[in-house]
């Protein structure tokens, strides 16, 4: 699991890459929460462009971020979701609450 954050004009971007499973989830959750506490963003983007694998541990993290942002009046979007994580998010039904956007494939098939 790789995590990096950047902030620009009140918008916090959290990029998660590699494999997000239970093994890396606790550290990811801790670091994300610290970042949100520190920056109190109005807009937050979780960018999954570099995410190679995610299971239901990732759903729990995204839900936590969503609840945290709701509590401080911020808004969450999840961007550039590759196919495998997208199937997991679809199965969870959280796309009914959270704005989730698939990665655009460059190559037409």
């Amino acid at each position: 699991m790789k995590l990096s954050t950047s902030e620009k004009a009140g918008k916090l971007t959290i990029a998660i890459g590699g494999e997000l499973d239970h093994h890396g989830a606790r550290e990811a959750a801790r670091r994300i929460e610290e970042t949100i506490e520190a920056s109190v963003p109005r807009d937050c983007v979780i960018d999954l462009r570099e995410l190679r694998f995610m299971d239901s541990s990732g759903i729990a993290i995204i839900l936590r971020v969503y609840k945290r942002l709701n509590a401080i009046g911020g808004r969450l979007t999840v961007e550039n979701v590759p196919e495998q994580p997208m199937r997991v998010l679809d199965a969870s039904g959280i796309d009914r609450m959270i704005d989730i956007n698939a990665m655009q494939t460059e190559k037409p098939v």
């Binding site: 239901s56 541990s57 729990a60 199937r87 997991v88 199965a91």
Partner: peptide, 22 residues
Amino acid sequence: EPLFTTGGEDRSGMGFTIMESF
């Protein structure tokens, strides 16, 4: 059942649901 968990905030309760649908 979907969303059932004894694991608290760390877990989503979606594990069995995902195994079943995948």
